[in-house]
Amino acid sequence: MSRPRRSAPPRGRRPRPKASKGESYVGRRFEVEVGPVAHGGHFVARVPLEDGASRVVFVRHALPGERVVVEITEGTAGDRFWRGDAVSVLSAAAERVVPPCPYAGPGLCGGCDFQHVSLSAQRELKATVLREQLVRLGGLSAEDPLVADLVVEAVPGDEAGLRWRTRQRYATAQGGGRGMRRYRSHDVIPVDDCLIASSDAREPGAGTVVESVDAGGATHSFEVAADGFWQVHPGAPATLVSAVLSALAPAPGDTVLDLYAGVGLFSAFLADEVGPTGRVVAVEGDRTASALSVGNVPSAEVTAGDVATVLGGLEEGPFDLVVLDPPREGARRPVVEAVAARSPRAVAYVACDPAALARDVAIFAEHGYRLRSLRGFDLFPMTHHVEAVALLTKTGSDQQ
């Protein structure tokens, strides 16, 4: 499946037009104490109202424990919650820093949620969100060591959290210059230099490019569409391959199902491990990426098509190992159940969304698969986005 969500981390979803629910509170300011981090780069606070009630507001540019003045950016009297920006900090958290980018802040570029947070604190916030989603949606216990001890690991290839984006798409600013969009808006903020873009970052275009990855003691080159999906952090491909290989421990002769296989990143290294007596079946929804994977991994059996549909028509024979690398919405029930029906001894799930991962972990649990290991990776510093690699095995298997 095509995965534009990781070739360009979103700068906030644009609000859909909605019917009025009463008086607008946009532009109103309130003094609030900031609560915990929430999924999506926000922090939870409560705004006191005139009648003694309060309203939940999701605040950007804040930190837990701070006292701030929040300006409401979306919200009416009838809404269940509001959105807002911390426009003045009355009591700052120890983790707060001066944003390195002049375009980061209330009303400015929407690309970076956490530029006002120290790098170590950014990673702890991401780990907190992963933990919370696994408990709330995944059914895990907060005391489970996999949850309680989870950390988000730094990945080599950036410069103190900056200069890591190898692909960068700009909007056209008024007057013809380049710019970035304001958070949840079509408005374009002129930007001279995006600090998370690498010095040689390129904009998506026509044709193909070649990417090389050194991992697991081997090096492979991949032809990738210039406007197609490829991890944008330079350390990401090798880091994820190494994590998947370590989790699955593939052996010669194993049969492997690589779902949402893209241009064959995982398939190539898995084919090395299972050898000529093994088998790798790769399924990818984007036909361009799937066609490129045929050349990238000649030994794999490649099928282009919707993953759930292809799985429904695939032979019912068992697979030893499965890799899932779904788009932001996750694999979802039809795919998870089709995977579980093939009784793999281990499933490596590469996730770019904590909530989607947690929901799918819960579905796997219904079919006897438990989370056995989990690693988080900071592939998108200065933003709220986080990548995770989870290992699930069948209860009673020799890998439990």
Rank of each mutant, 00 (worst) to 15 (best):
G110K: 10
A142F: 02
A201E: 07
T303W: 00
F269I: 12
G161A: 04
G205R: 08
G312K: 07
I363Y: 00
P99Y: 03
R55P: 05
S212N: 01
D398N: 01
Q400G: 02
T303I: 14
F319S: 00
R29C: 11
R46Q: 15
P156D: 14
R28A: 13
V302S: 07
A331V: 12
T255Q: 08
R359D: 07
V386D: 09
A77W: 05
A356R: 02
D51V: 13
S141V: 01
P15W: 11
L292K: 02
T395R: 07
L357V: 12
P318G: 05
A62H: 05
S54V: 13
R5L: 12
P15I: 08
P48F: 05
P102F: 09
G305Q: 04
V117L: 08
A226V: 02
R3I: 06
I196D: 10
A201L: 05
F319V: 15
G139P: 08
D320C: 10
L311N: 06
T255R: 15
G110W: 07
E315G: 15
L311Q: 06
S242M: 00
S2D: 13
L240N: 10
A331L: 07
G396Y: 03
T288P: 01
I189E: 13
G12T: 11
V323E: 03
L49Y: 02
A362E: 08
F229W: 02
S299W: 01
L357E: 06
R6A: 13
A92M: 01
V32H: 01
G376D: 04
R287F: 06
L379G: 02
R123A: 12
S290K: 00
G110C: 10
G78M: 04
V322K: 03
A289E: 14
V117P: 05
L292R: 08
Y349N: 06
E284K: 04
R333G: 04
A358C: 05
R80A: 15
A331K: 07
K394I: 01
F43G: 06
P48C: 11
G22Y: 03
